[in-house]
Nucleic acid binder design. Structure first.
Length: 238
DNA sequence: CGCCAGGGCCTCA
DNA sequence: TGAGGCCATGGC
């Protein structure tokens, strides 16, 4: 395999083209400018200390479910609606009526399914606090997450990478499209296989893992929509 | 308008 | 174990 097509090389090209993406977006980012405390929504470029609270970690988990096969723009309003209904704590969400949750998250689509999924994850975190889970090895957390209905490989890896800050590479549809279109992989590659291939090259650096996935989504949105692919490969090819 | 979105579960070969 | 159907609203 050409050295210039290594995953690191593509990462560098994406980063120089788009800059840091600041994933995962959380709704209340505290930033200090001099003496004043700024609260702003959304992204947090170059701030890799987040999440800083259990609520922010929980928010990332909820967002990871809500964004499944859905435009991210629908997620913050849904999270806000859940918050306004007082459902932003695992204890509350776990006991809420499905219909009440569904109403709050309606705009994200698949709302009946996702309402159930959110309750599952709420019950999980009620049982296993973050502070306990994060002590466990990555693979043990991952296996526990994968047992929850509604959490598949990608969602589990998003939660691991952005909520638990564990170096678990996230594979999504854009990742497969981009790397297969560039000739690095076969488009029929399995999730597990591609994840292993990428992780075997990348050193376990949190910022790289976090930004790489975000950059692939950024680039994918611009050039790798379902059909037909644009000419985004010109940016990445040697 | 029609296509698509930062998937995952279930079923059936 | 993999392909296919299903879930569903909102953005552009």
């Amino acid at each position: 395999m050409s050295r210039k097509r290594s995953f690191y090389n593509i990462y560098r090209k994406l980063m120089s083209a788009y800059g840091p993406q600041g994933w995962w977006p959380v709704s209340t980012v505290k930033m200090t400018a001099g003496d004043t405390l700024l609260l702003r929504d959304g992204y947090h470029p170059r701030n890799y200390t987040l999440p800083e609270s259990d609520e922010q970690r929980f928010e990332i988990c909820l967002g990871a479910i809500l964004v499944q096969n859905t435009n991210w723009l629908n997620v913050p309003p849904a999270l806000k609606a859940l918050r306004q209904k007082g459902l932003f704590l695992p204890d509350k969400l776990a006991e809420a009526e499905n219909q009440q949750i569904a109403l709050a998250i309606k705009r994200c689509g698949y709302y009946n399914q996702k309402a159930r999924y959110l309750k599952h994850i709420a019950k999980f975190f009620r049982l296993h606090p973050f502070s306990e889970l994060e002590q466990e090895p990555l693979d043990e957390i991952r296996n526990k997450l994968l047992k929850i209905k509604g959490i598949g490989p990608e969602t589990a890896d998003c939660i691991l990478l952005y909520a638990f800050k564990k170096c678990s590479f996230v594979i999504d549809a854009y990742t497969v499209r981009i790397f297969s279109h560039l000739g690095l992989i076969d488009s029929a590659v399995s999730y597990h296989e591609l994840k292993g291939l990428i992780e075997s090259e990348l050193k376990p650096e949190l910022e790289v893992y976090q930004e790489y996935h975000a950059l692939l989504v950024c680039h994918g949105k611009l050039h790798y929509r379902r059909k037909p692919y644009g000419s985004g490969d010109q940016l990445l090819l040697p």
